[in-house]
Design a protein around this nucleic acid. Structure first.
Lengths: 325, 325
DNA sequence: TTGTAAGCGTTATCAA
DNA sequence: TTGATAACGCTTACAA
């Protein structure tokens, strides 16, 4: 039995002839080893859990693609779970992954404050954890994020350089790290330019096309006298763009519009949208490396790392030629 | 030990007081059951494997979203694997899933002919299997597909009704079911309208934006005298659109363009693209139901089912106002 | 190089 | 209602 086990795994200490014979017989029998039993015996599952708010949303497919490549190459399979931004579902998925004894977890937390418990649960089991895209309040753990603050500053600075002063921000929920940081960047850029910050111009939209369209429509109906919009992300910018097209008559003048994240869709509009591009694939790659370094016998015991991936300002017509309506 | 096991699972035959005491103690200890051991003992993993060409591609995120919802609600976790259209990688992933003793597999096969072996492998292990989006030659198994043929016919008929006769088809690789069916529909529609089929106008592009752009650019350089284009899918149509914009001067006249699948991006172009819409969520939902019906003690033993989800023709400016260049 | 025994953490089965 | 025993199919540790 042990000889067969060794032969099939390609372990040392088996006579080449014996190994040959084992492999041949296994093939003849159509024998497929039971990984579940192996996992139990080894207390190692070669499995990684990935929890994201929504796999179909904006940049997560890109990140996941990269995670899949990296981990698959190392012989891992991935469990993927969606929290749909609900901390309770997130918690439930964390429990499931821990019960299944995954070797590590990649988490894009649902909430800045409410995801703490779920993350704590993971760490208390000594399960390696890497956070992506969003941080969690009070938690020091390996993390790969984007320079949301810096990106927002560069976006708003760009608007200011183009001569805009009346800049609205369509923001995302403040329970999400990225939304907070981008709002912080918006404020900082205005402050540094000595432009008065109007709280009424910081509008809670959300992170979806629909929420952007709604928020923009409301704003237009108020006949607000703004001349530029910085959106928390590209889907919201797309929604705002749609609203401008539909209710454009109400816009005070040509409007400048800039988003964040660099999704493909906004590039091909009649007026292509400016944006702050982030390197999705790199987030996935770095996260995978970080996690792999924490797994296994020669696991790295060093202090948690936080990688902040730089962004790139992409200037298109929506902030130069503007959106006429 | 058995009492604890029963209590934690919520099984019958435990004194309420005892159960109470067990649950309390487990909580105090921070005890988390080991699913790996449970899986081994029960020979059941509550795990489903999903294999798709690329999770980030076109409609797979939508399908996956639905799969996740359905299975998660039933207590299953999902392994997700990408074949990247390579039959060998697909085969490798199938082996991994079988070794891990998943309770069922949802497969979007990489190839019409070359995926047969992988699927056979699954069925030979008596592992429930549902195919989505694409069929496999010679394989009769539960399947959820779109009415690709009918959708293609309706798209081409629409072009014909608009008065176009010189219709080009940018097709996808013929090793993929959907590409084959859509090409078949193109031929049938032309034949029924007694329009001569020019083989030179059936152009192998691929399934990506890039491939569509390339193919269209090549065609424009040939000064071909066509007046409409039916694309195998929306990404290819988007690529063709781009090419028309860039090299438009070479287009013989305003061109009609229609795609397939109904991705969001093409709706917001300067000239919104017509398309054949498919119900992605429904594919996921039906596939999940089909698979769940084949799992467990009261598994359905009926003959394999093939669900063909109807499509819907969406007419936009690209086939009525046309694309001027 | 091969083989034996014990154990991984559950659950099925049968007895108390 | 509770408990003892033997799997589940593999791997680790050690002996031959």
């Amino acid at each position: 039995m042990m000889t067969v086990s060794r032969a099939l795994r390609g372990a040392y200490g088996v006579n080449p002839k014996t190994r040959e014979r084992v492999l041949r017989t296994a093939k003849e029998m159509g024998y497929i080893p039971n990984q579940v039993a192996s996992n139990l015996a080894q207390n190692k599952t070669n499995t990684i859990g990935v929890i994201v708010p929504d796999i179909g949303l904006s940049f997560f497919p890109n990140v996941f693609h990269q995670l899949e490549s990296e981990f698959s190459a190392q012989g891992y399979n991935l469990f993927i779970c969606c929290s749909y931004d609900q901390p309770e579902k997130e918690r439930k998925e964390v429990m499931a992954l821990i019960s299944r004894r995954v070797d590590g977890i990649v988490l894009a937390p649902a909430s800045w404050k409410e995801s703490y418990g779920a993350a704590r649960l993971i760490l208390d089991q000594d399960c390696p954890l890497v956070l992506i895209d969003r941080r969690i309040k009070g938690l020091d753990v390996d993390t790969v994020i984007v320079d949301d603050y810096g990106g927002a500053v560069s976006a708003v600075n760009h608007l200011i350089e183009q001569g805009f002063r009346r800049i609205v921000h369509l923001s995302g929920g403040q329970n999400i790290w990225t939304s907070r940081e981008r709002l912080r960047g918006y404020r900082a850029a205005l402050r540094d330019a000595k432009i008065n910050i109007k709280e009424a111009w910081i509008i809670l939209a959300g992170l979806t096309v629909e929420s952007g369209e709604e928020a923009m429509t409301r704003l237009l109906e108020q006949n607000a006298n703004f001349d530029a919009i910085f959106c928390v992300n590209d889907p919201v910018a797309l929604g705002a763009y749609r609203a401008l097209q539909r209710h454009g008559g109400k816009a005070p003048k040509p409007i400048a519009l800039i988003g964040f994240a660099g999704i493909q869709e906004t590039e091909m509009l009649e007026t292509p949208l400016s944006t702050v591009q982030q390197d999705d694939a790199r987030i996935g790659r770095e996260a995978a490396q970080l996690l792999l370094n924490r797994i296994g016998p020669n696991a790295n015991e060093s202090k948690p790392v936080c990688l902040k991936i730089p962004t790139q300002l992409i200037i298109r017509a929506s902030t130069t030629a503007l959106i006429k309506s």
